[in-house]
């Protein structure tokens, strides 16, 4: 009976994952491996193709779900928004990193909302102290977003805009400092993470485990969080045994990734703080400001 309960929990979290996250790993891998026929993504590999890509995406209908605002947009990650317009004539190249960064921010804010909905679907989460729910999201959400980037990436680049665009790693590296430093650590992490070959149902449980971390600073009532996490950890361990019977120590390897993840988030937040100081034109999305203020 206990195993049956754990399997039911796995199914529940997988369903919530499918409900709230528009671009699954299965879809992303199909796009990356060219199995989508005529719907190959548009490739952005230099400034010219970036400009074309912006126009391309603005002409296309972004696939939307009920909970997503219908905005045509360029985005990073699982879909999203392009708040800024194409620059007019001069300064286009100077502004491009900032404009791109703004679109990343808008998409990230939308993704935070998706992760929040997913968190609320974890059994017991909404019964936790509301301040603790906030703390778990504040500390967990960037970790979750970085894990969710992995399926969209390969060693050569990343899918953006719901998988409609592929942006090359070399292009991201060619942006001016410090923008060029933002994605490279995520590529390095993702390429290694992808060798674990998790599928979407494994990912759903792993994301819930990350969210339910009882060691986040400032938690008021740790015990119920740890109890919830323990149950999800059991479900994850069973899931990996059943889904990857030949992958030895996968559970342990996956848990080790959580340590790497914290370092990546710390470095990411420091980069954003640096950007805030050095880029006069940069404004940070209020939701991201809330999350990153006094984070690490």
């Amino acid at each position: 009976p206990e195993a049956a309960d754990l399997r039911a929990l796995s199914r529940h979290l997988y369903e919530a994952y499918l409900k709230y996250f528009p671009l699954t790993k299965a879809k992303a891998r199909a796009i990356l491996s060219g199995k989508t026929g005529d719907n190959a993504p548009f490739v952005i590999h230099d400034m010219k193709s970036l400009m074309e890509g912006e126009q391309f995406i603005n002409c296309k209908q972004i696939p939307t779900q009920e909970h997503q605002p219908q905005t045509s947009a360029l985005s990073v990650g699982h879909g999203g928004l392009m708040g800024a317009h194409l620059g007019s004539e001069c300064n286009i190249l100077d502004a491009v990193e900032l404009r791109f960064f703004h679109s990343c921010q808008s998409r990230s804010a939308e993704a935070v909302r998706e992760v929040t909905e997913f968190a609320k679907s974890i059994p017991g989460f909404i019964n936790l102290d509301l301040n603790d729910q906030v703390t778990l999201l504040k500390y967990g959400v960037i970790e979750v977003l970085i894990i969710m980037m992995a399926p969209l990436m390969n060693k050569d680049g990343t899918l953006i805009a719901y998988g409609q665009i592929f942006m090359t790693r070399e292009f991201l590296k060619s942006l001016r400092k410090p923008f060029c430093q933002m994605m490279e650590p995520k590529f390095e992490f993702s390429v290694k993470f992808n060798t674990l070959e998790l599928d979407d149902s494994d990912m759903a449980l792993f994301l819930a485990v990350i969210i339910l971390s009882g060691d986040r600073p400032g938690l008021l009532n740790v015990k119920p969080i740890e109890q919830l996490q323990e149950t999800v950890l059991h479900a994850l361990e069973l899931q990996l045994k059943l889904n990857h019977p030949d992958s030895l120590q996968l559970f342990a390897k996956l848990l080790q990734k959580m340590t790497d993840l914290r370092q990546i988030v710390t470095d990411h937040v420091h980069l954003i703080q640096l950007l805030k100081k050095t880029e006069v034109d940069m404004c940070l999305h209020p939701l991201l400001q809330e999350i990153m203020k006094d984070l690490y």
């Binding site: 909970h67 605002p69 509301l130 906030v134 999305h285 209020p286 939701l287």
Partner: peptide, 20 residues
Amino acid sequence: KEKHKILHRLLQNSTSPVEL
């Protein structure tokens, strides 16, 4: 609460679209 008002709002509102 004031420091994290958008997160609070996201947590307390159900699935209706939230003005971010």
